[in-house]
Design a protein around this nucleic acid. Sequence first.
DNA 1: GGTGAAATTTCCAGTGA
DNA 2: TCACTGGAAATTTCACC
Lengths: 144, 144
Amino acid sequence: MDEIDRALVALLQQDAGQAYAALGKAIGLSAGATHERVRKLRERGVIRRTTVDVDPRALGLGVLAFVMVESSAWMGDSAEAFAAISEIEEAHIIAGSASVLVKVRTAGTEQLQDVLRRLYAIEGVSGTQATVTLETFFERPPAL
Amino acid sequence: MDEIDRALVALLQQDAGQAYAALGKAIGLSAGATHERVRKLRERGVIRRTTVDVDPRALGLGVLAFVMVESSAWMGDSAEAFAAISEIEEAHIIAGSASVLVKVRTAGTEQLQDVLRRLYAIEGVSGTQATVTLETFFERPPAL
DNA sequence: GGTGAAATTTCCAGTGA
DNA sequence: TCACTGGAAATTTCACC
């Protein structure tokens, strides 16, 4: 993980569809060597997968909310229960008054309410506190 | 945006690196027709870009935190000020007691503290309330 | 890490439903 | 308008230096 690897990852974050020859030119490497670098980055798990960034609104997902989930029990083994709710994009255990923080995207507020209902159905969940976003400034990949 | 498009987007979210022939086979289309569908999805902005999913820990980013930013003024025009802090992955205007919610990833708690310092330097910011995550259950693309 | 060539894949016509 | 076929052009992906 040297400077070249970092530059490579940054370029791939911007556009993973470009040719190895173009990537190589940008970092001063041949197409073959660039290919080998990328292969190793994948092998080591630095690059998990190549994916597409989709506009949520084009999918009809107009509401984004963050929900603090309070609990009356240890939630450390409840990952699957949260993952089973497809509208949840992220779920994290947090330090603080709540136990779990989830990021939820739904078509509308009715669907958000339904997600809250399903959250309450999870074993140990004793409360929720939803915060609806009014506008997203930006969402971007982690900076290097 | 029919059923085939949705299936296509779902497949691309899982792996954007596969050949059009393989994608087409999975949805019952020829490679050429699949290519044309994807081209139009990009053109219409449904697919914003193809990127790589990077493991933050491999980049030395071990701390993830969400920060509620309180303000004494309208923050609607402050997107650039937040974007200028590279450790901020997301920034959203929210409805509630705070004004802006940001997602921050740093190497350690010292760097997180430095981000808070820079947040206070933004015009109108009057307070912050940081929540550090202890464990991430999952982070995934929006479901279709 | 570079080079070059073989194997794939992309991508564009032309055609038809 | 949408999809299929065939082939040329580009790219990936190897073996070898």
